[in-house]
């Protein structure tokens, strides 16, 4: 019942994870350096469309992913709008001060958040952690000790969650009263953290011992063989072309159909 399981396999799934990782970093870089409001908006739009089309996840599930985006959009843009600096004042009430500049900057920030999230999810929804680390080991010479410890710890996460649920039930059974006050809250956090951490450390130690017993040598890079081969294919070129085209689209659209037409939103 994995919510991330795709219903369709797209080009993006077939591309090499290392290529995807590089590509996503390039897109991040572009997004960070964008200060034009129109370009930003089109980026957010275009990559959202890419995500829906290329992730292969059912559209209604994708809508679920957009709920946190929307929250991030509203919170980051609204706080920028209400408290940001600006000269052309539109509305003022106590601490709140909305000016033209802060309004646009708020929107810009919100779009930036959405663009970031879409780009990140493009990678996350189409790449399994195992694939990613296998590629990193083979293509970028990542030491196996890091790759396998990450993969092992991902396997341990659900066990921690299970124990959290049991701990919650156990506290209820023992008659621990509901939380009141900040001090109690800190106290309660300790009640969860200590046993869960103790269990996790012990478990991690046991997994490590088991890995050692299987003759694992964390620094062995050269002679190691790999169950999943990592190859470059034509899908890599296709994906690079596709995402580059998407970015160009956003740029051209911003040039021809500017919605806001105010250019750089930075405060000079």
């Amino acid at each position: 019942m994995n919510i991330w399981n795709p219903v369709r396999i797209t080009w993006l799934h077939r591309a090499n994870p290392v290529v995807k990782l590089g590509l996503i970093f390039a897109l991040f870089f572009m997004t960070v350096l964008t200060h034009d409001l129109d370009f930003m908006m089109y980026q957010a739009l275009v990559f959202m469309v890419c995500l829906v089309v290329l992730s292969g996840v059912k559209p209604w599930k994708m809508l679920l992913f957009f709920i946190p985006f929307l929250l991030a959009f509203i919170s980051s843009s609204s706080s920028m709008m209400l408290f940001g600096k600006g000269e052309t004042l539109w509305w003022e009430w106590g601490l709140f001060r909305v000016s033209e500049e802060s309004f646009y900057r708020g929107l810009h920030l919100g779009f930036k958040g959405i663009a970031f999230a879409s780009e990140g999810l493009l990678l996350v929804t189409t790449t399994s952690s195992v694939d990613l680390f296998y590629s990193l080991m083979q293509k970028l010479r990542l030491a196996p000790k890091y790759a396998y410890s990450f993969m092992a710890s991902i396997r341990l996460l659900p066990m921690v969650w299970e124990e959290f649920v049991i701990r919650r039930q156990a506290l209820k059974v023992r008659g621990v009263r509901p939380i009141r006050g900040v001090r109690n809250m800190v106290n309660r956090a300790g009640m969860y953290v200590v046993p869960l951490l103790a269990q996790s450390i012990r478990r991690a130690h046991r997994v490590a011992a088991a890995m050692e017993a299987k003759q694992f040598n964390g620094d062995q890079v050269k002679a190691r063989t790999y169950y999943y081969p990592s190859r470059y294919s034509r899908y890599d070129l296709l994906v690079i072309g596709l995402l580059a085209a998407a970015a160009c689209c956003a740029y051209v659209a911003a040039g021809y159909f500017p919605w806001f037409g105010i250019g750089d939103v930075r405060f000079d």
Binding site: V130, Y148, M151, A152, I154, R155, R206, V207, A210, M211, K214, Q215, F216, N217, Q220, R224, T225, Y226, Y227
Partner: peptide, 17 residues
Amino acid sequence: QFCMPYVDEELAFVLEN
């Protein structure tokens, strides 16, 4: 005792070593 999520991957881990 296992560091990988799937049966074949776990066995492959040993063979890779």
